[in-house]
Design a protein around this nucleic acid. Structure first.
Length: 882
RNA sequence: GCACGCUUAGCUCAGUUGGUUAGAGCAUCUCGUUUACACCGAGAGGGUCGGGGGUUCGAAUCCCUCAGCGUGCACCA
C-alpha cells in the first residue's frame, strides 16, 4: 500500500508561496525555456501603476491572463506573458507631492531635479510591492522581460515615436483651448474629462442697460472675457443686430461685444443669444477664430481670475461668480435666476472641476494623412492613411477582434468623433518632451544639438503616450529584436472595458503608425468588479474588497475561481466574501478527491494512457471526461472561461466525486482509472487554480512540473471501448435515476438511513442491464435485497416509482401509508396527463408535423409513447393499491 | 438627446446559431448509514424568463413597444 499522509483540509496559505517559488525557479515563465514550443502566444500585461497596490481589478485581469497563459503553455505554445509597471505620471507625482507636503515642501521649492529624485526613490521602493502582489495571484509571467514605462528602452521608444510623428507632421504644437485641471495643474485629453450632473443656477441678464437684449449663462464670471454675442442667423428677434458692435461696461469691466451669427446657436435655449467667451470654451474659441474676435483670458491656471479685472482679480471662480451676480443685481440687470441641472466637467483622476483654457500645447493629428511604409500587414490599399482611418480599418476588417463584439461599435463611434490628441502635460514626472528651443528655432530629438543655449520643453508626455507603445516597446522596438519578430503582434490584449479608449484604442493608433501592424489580434474586455450592492468598488466609498485579505482568508485559488466562473466578458460582476468562500469549499473538494485517491491506491504513479474501462461506470466516467474536455477546449478557444470552469466543476463534483468515487468503493480495483482521471483533472484545473493542482501533482511522481505538462486534447475517437456514446451514457444514467428514485422513496416514506430496505424492479426491456448493476444499486440505495422481474403487478405494501419503462417498488411492509401512496400516484398521474396533453396537442398540429425538422417530430412522438405507457403503469399501480 | 447593456428561483448568475417539462451555486426545508471531504453527503420545495404586442409549427432566445436600473457619448450659452 502506498502510504502518504495528507491533511483533511487544504490550507492554501501554507503552500502557495512555496509553489510560486518552484515555478519561478524552474524558468518556465520564460518562453525561451519551453523546449519544443513553436507557435507563439503572447499577452502584454496591462502595467499596473508602479506605486499602486493590488485591487480587485488587477486581480481579475491577472486571473484571466494567467488562465490563458497557462492553458497555452500546457498546449505547447511558445508562451510569453510580459509583465511591467506604469509610471502613471500624474497619479505618482501627486502622491509624492503629498509626501513632501508633510515636510512643508512643494515641488517648486525642491526644484525639478531634486523632486524627480524623490519620485524615483519612492517609485523604486513601492514598485516591489505591486510586483510581489502580482506574484501572490499566481501570475506566471516572465519576470526576466519585465519592463517599466520609464526605463531606458521604453524611453528611447517614446522619443523615436515622437520624432517620427513630428517629422511626418503628425505631432504639432498649437495654441488652443484645452482641458485644464487647476488641481493637477495640467492639461487633460478630452477623454480624461468626466461629467457629473449637478444643480446649477442659470442666470439671465444684460451686460448693461444699453445692451438691446439679455443673454443667459451658468457661469457669469467668465463673461468678463466676452467679445461677442452669437445668435442664430434665422432668429427674427436678433437678425437686425448681426454685425453691430457694442461697447459696454459689464459690472465694472469694459467689453467690446460684436453680434455674430452662428447656426449652432439654439434659438430655444435661454434667450437664444449666447455670450461668446473665446478663452474659456472650445466652441466659443472656434467662433472667435471664424469671426476674428479677440481672446480675453479670465481664468488663470490656478483657477483664479486673471489680473487686470478689477475687484475680481485673484478671486476663485466661485467667489467671482458671486461678486458678478451681486453686482448685476445692484445694477438691476439680472432678469432671471433659474435652477437647472447641468453637467460639470471634472478631472477623471482627482474629480476637480475642469477649466477650459487657451494654451500652447503639443497635439497628435488624427486626421492628417501620412505615408505607410508597409501596406501589406494591415491589408491597406492606398499609399496614405490617417491614424483614425487605420485604427478603424483594423477592427472593421477583423484584423483585430474585440470580445465581446458589441464593444466594436463603441470603439468605432469613439474614433469617428476623435479630435486631435493633446499629449503635453505640465507635470514633471514622465517622459520629458524631446523638443528643444533656442530663440525661434525648434529641434526635436533626445539630445539638444551642440551649443548651450538650447532649452528643453518643460512639459512631459501624457502617460498614455508611452503606454500606447507598450506591446512593441516592451519587445525592443525601435530595434528589430528577435523578441519583436517572434512575439508581435501579440495574441490577446486583456483589460477592463473602462480603458478601451484611454489605452486600447491608442495602442492600435500607435501600432498601426509605428509598425504599420496591429498590436494584438484579439481584445478581450472584462467587466468591472462591484460590491454586493452592485456599486463600483472604490477607495473613497470604502466598499472595496482587498484581494490580499481574501487570499489570506481563502487562498488565491479560491479568489481566482470567483473571478473566472460565473463571470462573462464585458459584463460587470459582483464579488463578496461568501462567493469566494464557496469556491474555497470547492478547492477543498478537489483536495479531498485527490486525498482519497492518493491514499487508497496501491501505487501512486502517472497514468498517461487511457486504461481499459471494465464496467459500465468506468465507461460512463471516461466518456464524461472526454466530453468535458471537448467542452472545455471549445470554451477556452472562444474565451468562454466561465463555461469551461462550469463544465469542469460539474464533472469534478457532481459526476466524478458524487457518483464515480462512491462506485469505486463498491467495484474496487480502479487504481489506474482513478489515477488517470485525477491526473487529467489536475491538468484541466491548473489554469484556473494553479496552486492546489501543482501541489497535488507533486505526489504523482512526475518528472515534469504540472505547469509544463501536456494539456489533455483527447478526441472521442481515442475511446477504446466499443459502445457508442449514447449507449454508455444513457445506460448509466438509467442506473443513476433508479438509485435516485429509490432514495427518494426512502425519504418520502421516512425509512431511516441506517435501515436496509428491499426492492423489486420490473423492466421488460432492460432487465439484463439493470440487474448487471445490482451491487451498485443495492449499496447506493441502501438495500438488503433487490429482485428483478420482466413483468408483474405492483407488489402489496410497496411504494412505487417509474424510471423510463422500469417500475421500481420499495417494500414498505409494516409502514405503508396507503392513503399517502394513493395521493402520490394520483398527483403524478395528473402531471403526466398534463404533459401528455401538451404533447398530443403539438403532434395533432399539422403545421408542426409538416414544418418542424423530422428528428424533432420523431422525438416528440417518442415522448408521447413513453408518457402513454407511463400513464398506463401509474393507473395500474393505483388500481393495485386498493 | 444618441447609443449600448441589464431585467431568468429569496440572492448571485448560466442559458452557444429559436426545438426535451428552463439550469447551476448559495440560501431554505427534511434527513445523516458510509473515515476523501460537515469547507461533507442524501432527498425536497422554489421560476406565467420585467410588462404588452408581433414573427414562427414552435420564443427566455428574433422584431416592435413600454417600464425600471446601469454605462458610454453628446449637449451643458
Amino acid at each position: 500500500m502506498s502510504k502518504i499522509e495528507l491533511p483533511k483540509a487544504y490550507d492554501a496559505s501554507q503552500i502557495e508561496d512555496d509553489i510560486y517559488r518552484i515555478w519561478e525557479e524552474s524558468g518556465f515563465f520564460n518562453p525561451d525555456n519551453l523546449r519544443g514550443a513553436k507557435i507563439p502566444f503572447t499577452i502584454s500585461m496591462p502595467p499596473p501603476n508602479a506605486t499602486g497596490v493590488l485591487h480587485t481589478g488587477h486581480a481579475t485581469m491577472l486571473a484571466i491572463q494567467d488562465l490563458m497563459t497557462r492553458y497555452h503553455r500546457m498546449k505547447g505554445d511558445k508562451t510569453l506573458w510580459l509583465p511591467g509597471t506604469d509610471h502613471a505620471s500624474i497619479a505618482t507625482q501627486t502622491k509624492v507631492e503629498k509626501i513632501i507636503a508633510q515636510e512643508g515642501l512643494t515641488r517648486h521649492q525642491l526644484g525639478r531635479e531634486k523632486f524627480l529624485a524623490r519620485v524615483d526613490e519612492f517609485v523604486s521602493d513601492s514598485r516591489n510591492t505591486i510586483k510581489n502582489q502580482i506574484r501572490k495571484m499566481g501570475s506566471s509571467c516572465d519576470w526576466s522581460r519585465e519592463r517599466f514605462t520609464l526605463d531606458a528602452g521604453l524611453n528611447s521608444a517614446v522619443i523615436v515615436a515622437f520624432e517620427k510623428m513630428y517629422n511626418d507632421g503628425l505631432i504639432y504644437r498649437g495654441d488652443r483651448v484645452v482641458n485644464w485641471c487647476p488641481r493637477c495643474k495640467s492639461t487633460l485629453a478630452d477623454d480624461e474629462v468626466e461629467y457629473k450632473e449637478q444643480q446649477a443656477k442659470f442666470y439671465t441678464f444684460k451686460y448693461n442697460k444699453d445692451f438691446p437684449f439679455a443673454i443667459s449663462t451658468t457661469r457669469p464670471e467668465t463673461k468678463l472675457g466676452d467679445s461677442a454675442v452669437a445668435v442664430n442667423p434665422k432668429d427674427e428677434r436678433y437678425k437686425k443686430y448681426i454685425g453691430q458692435e457694442f461697447e459696454v461696461d459689464f459690472v465694472g469691466v469694459p467689453l467690446k461685444i460684436k453680434i455674430i451669427a452662428d447656426h449652432n446657436v439654439d434659438m430655444e435655449f435661454g434667450t437664444g443669444a449666447l455670450g461668446v467667451t473665446p478663452a474659456h470654451s472650445q466652441i466659443d474659441y472656434q467662433m472667435a477664430g471664424a469671426n476674428n474676435l479677440p481672446i480675453i483670458k479670465v481664468i488663470n491656471k490656478d483657477g483664479r481670475i486673471e489680473d487686470g479685472l478689477r475687484q475680481y482679480s485673484g478671486k476663485t471662480v466661485e467667489e467671482a461668480r458671486e461678486l458678478v451676480v451681486s453686482e448685476l443685481k445692484t445694477r438691476g440687470l439680472l432678469e432671471k435666476e433659474e435652477d437647472i441641472s447641468n453637467n460639470l466637467s471634472i478631472c477623471y483622476r482627482c474629480g476637480f472641476a475642469i477649466e477650459p483654457l487657451p494654451s500652447l500645447q503639443w497635439f497628435v493629428a488624427v486626421d492628417k494623412p501620412f505615408k505607410l511604409k508597409d501596406k501589406k500587414k494591415l491589408n491597406w490599399e492606398k499609399d496614405e492613411a490617417t491614424l483614425k482611418e487605420l485604427a478603424i480599418h483594423a477592427v472593421k476588417n477583423n484584423l483585430i477582434k474585440i470580445v465581446p463584439a458589441r464593444f466594436e461599435k463603441i470603439y468605432f463611434h469613439w474614433l469617428e468623433n476623435l479630435h486631435d490628441w493633446c499629449i503635453s502635460r505640465q507635470i514633471w514626472y514622465g517622459h520629458q518632451i524631446p523638443v528643444w528651443y533656442k530663440d525661434e528655432d525648434i529641434y526635436v530629438g533626445q539630445l539638444a544639438p551642440k551649443g548651450n543655449s538650447w532649452v528643453q520643453d518643460e512639459d512631459t508626455l501624457d502617460t498614455w503616450f508611452s503606454s500606447a507603445l507598450w506591446t512593441f516597446s516592451t519587445l525592443g522596438w525601435p530595434e528589430n529584436t528577435d523578441d519583436l519578430k517572434t512575439f508581435h503582434p501579440t495574441s490577446v490584449m486583456e483589460t477592463g472595458y473602462d480603458i478601451l479608449f484611454f489605452w486600447v484604442a491608442r495602442m492600435i493608433i500607435m501600432s498601426v503608425y509605428c509598425l504599420n501592424d496591429i498590436p494584438f489580434e484579439t481584445v478581450y474586455l472584462h467587466g468591472l468588479v462591484r460590491d454586493e450592492k452592485g456599486v463600483k468598488m472604490s477607495k473613497s466609498l470604502d466598499n472595496s474588497i482587498d484581494p490580499l485579505d481574501m487570499i489570506k482568508k481563502y487562498g488565491t485559488d479560491a479568489l481566482r475561481l470567483s473571478m473566472l466562473i460565473g463571470v462573462t466578458p464585458g459584463n460587470d460582476f459582483k464579488l463578496y466574501d461568501e462567493k469566494i468562500a464557496g469556491y474555497r469549499n470547492f478547492i477543498n473538494k478537489i483536495w479531498n478527491i485527490s486525498r482519497y485517491i492518493l491514499t487508497s491506491v496501491e501505487d501512486i504513479r502517472l497514468v498517461e494512457k487511457l486504461p481499459q474501462a471494465n464496467t459500465l461506470a468506468d465507461k460512463w466516467i471516461t466518456d464524461e471526461l472526454f466530453s468535458t474536455i471537448t467542452v472545455i477546449n471549445n470554451s477556452l478557444e472562444n474565451y468562454n472561461f466561465s463555461a469551461a470552469g462550469d463544465a469542469l466543476q460539474e464533472f469534478t463534483w457532481n459526476k466524478f466525486a458524487d457518483w464515480y468515487l462512491e462506485i469505486a468503493k463498491i467495484e474496487k480495483d480502479k487504481d489506474e482509472i482513478l489515477l488517470y482521471i485525477l491526473q487529467n483533472l489536475l491538468k484541466l484545473w491548473h489554469p484556473f487554480c494553479p496552486f492546489i493542482t501543482e501541489n497535488i501533482w507533486q505526489n504523482l511522481k512526475s518528472e515534469k512540473l504540472l505547469i509544463v505538462s501536456k494539456w489533455p486534447d483527447h478526441k472521442k475517437s481515442n475511446l477504446i471501448f466499443k459502445f457508442s456514446k449514447n449507449d454508455t451514457v444513457v445506460n448509466f444514467q438509467l442506473i443513476q435515476n433508479i438509485i435516485t428514485a429509490l432514495r427518494n422513496l426512502r425519504g418520502e416514506n421516512k425509512i431511516e438511513p441506517a435501515k436496509l430496505a428491499q426492492a423489486i424492479i420490473i423492466s421488460k426491456n432492460q432487465k439484463t442491464l439493470i440487474s448487471s448493476q445490482s451491487e451498485i444499486i443495492k449499496k447506493l440505495a441502501r438495500l438488503s435485497q433487490l429482485e428483478f422481474l420482466s413483468k408483474g403487478d405492483k407488489p402489496k405494501n410497496s411504494a412505487s416509482a417509474l424510471v423510463g419503462e422500469a417500475e421500481i417498488y420499495l417494500d414498505l411492509t409494516g409502514i405503508i401509508d396507503t392513503v399517502a401512496e394513493k395521493e402520490r400516484i394520483t398527483r403524478e398521474i395528473t402531471e403526466v396527463e398534463k404533459y401528455l396533453k401538451s404533447l398530443a396537442g403539438k403532434l395533432a398540429n399539422d403545421e408542426f408535423v409538416n414544418n418542424a425538422p423530422e428528428e424533432i417530430v420523431k422525438a416528440e412522438k417518442e415522448k408521447l409513447s413513453v408518457q402513454k405507457s407511463k400513464l398506463e403503469k401509474l393507473q395500474n399501480q393505483l388500481n393495485n393499491l386498493k
